[in-house]
Amino acid sequence: MKVAITAGEPNFEAKLEPRFGRCAYFLIVETETQDWKPMQNPAADAMGGAGPQAAQFLADQGVEAVISGEFGPNAYTALEAAGIRMFRTRVENISSLFEKFLTDQLEPISGPTSPQRHGGRRARG
């Protein structure tokens, strides 16, 4: 089974990047072999719709579970429709989070964990 973990850099010993839609990388880990590879998140700099775009990307990769810090409503809806299980956690080393995932120590979520946002850097004066 493929698991995606949100990361700020392509490094298995790095810390978790807590934002799902706008993380720089997904580390895709194969649970049987424990092989991992980094993939750039195509939605990292999206003007809007980062959550659905990132979810579409993971679904296209055949990912079945994702570990991150926050899941917005659009990301949650898209990931749930794709049948991808979501696990929310505090920021820790990715390698130790993967160990916790393997030993069922991470809690799956049953709803969005952060409010709707629009755009990456939106402000109004």
Partner: peptide
Amino acid sequence: CAEICQYHAIVSVADKVLVFPQL
């Protein structure tokens, strides 16, 4: 549809198509 949408307002996952009206 999901491939061509510039605003990522439509996703196609697991044989389902979802529309995000606000996007």
